[in-house]
Design a protein around this nucleic acid. Sequence first.
DNA 1: AAAAGCCCCTGGATGC
DNA 2: TGCATCCAGGGGCTTT
Length: 271
Amino acid sequence: MPELPEVEVTRLSFASRIEGARILSVRLGKALRWPLGCAPSRLVNRGVLGVRRRGKYLLIDLDQGLLLLHLGMSGSLSFAKDLPAPGRHDHFEMVTTQGTLRLNDPRRFGAVVYADAQDAGAARTLLGRLGVEPLTQDFDVDRFHAGLKRRKAAIKQVLLAGDVVVGVGNIYASEALFLAGIRPTVIAARLSRPRVARLHAAIRDILGRALASGGTTLRNFASASGEKGHFQFETMVYAREGEPCRVCSKAIKSLRQGQRSTFYCPQCQKA
DNA sequence: AAAAGCCCCTGGATGC
DNA sequence: TGCATCCAGGGGCTTT
């Protein structure tokens, strides 16, 4: 579920509330993607300094070490003083002096991993290959163009891979390519500089607007304060196969790329 | 080095 | 109603 906008919406919904808290207890449910990496009791009494985001990872900085948290495909967080009794899909819970942080993740593709120091072990491996942050100044057309130049895979799959630019998942990749008028199957390296510039602008636009809309809630997504997103009402192509394009009325098409579905308009995205 | 497949897991929708 | 099949917002790992 969660792409960059959903992860950032989640971060914003609890970062300031948990900052300065002290951890009172940690409880684990069923196994997530990776083990926590330390005994839960080791986290007790640590202080929470703040919450950052890198790509689709949330980084909870502690006064000693940090927690890396990923929502996977179906994860969502809750943070509140009084939460209902844990359900069957609540697999991580951290009680703090300022509220309880809980991860609900039915598919368990998500993860919570403890790392000793910022550039140690897990953090380095998981974050090391990530591309540039699309909503920062570091994401500029020159750099993006250079990154795409050496990739001979389809542009949609290069966007999803996250090693050129992070945070663009299956929904926003289709949406950004539509906005830029680019066919998802085009080889990344073949995109002309003006088209790369359009895609660059489209990615920033789509992620920015989705963020402002509280993200996309297809099924379960909600921020840590329980707010659902509403960007699903603004999608141009995603999950609209057979429906008329909102620009030209041609039927939206879909195809499979790397076991993921892609949606596009055959008229607005001719090449 | 980069591309393509595989797989982790559960649940909801659809079809017979 | 019951059961099988397919699909889902991610991404690390292994194989080409």
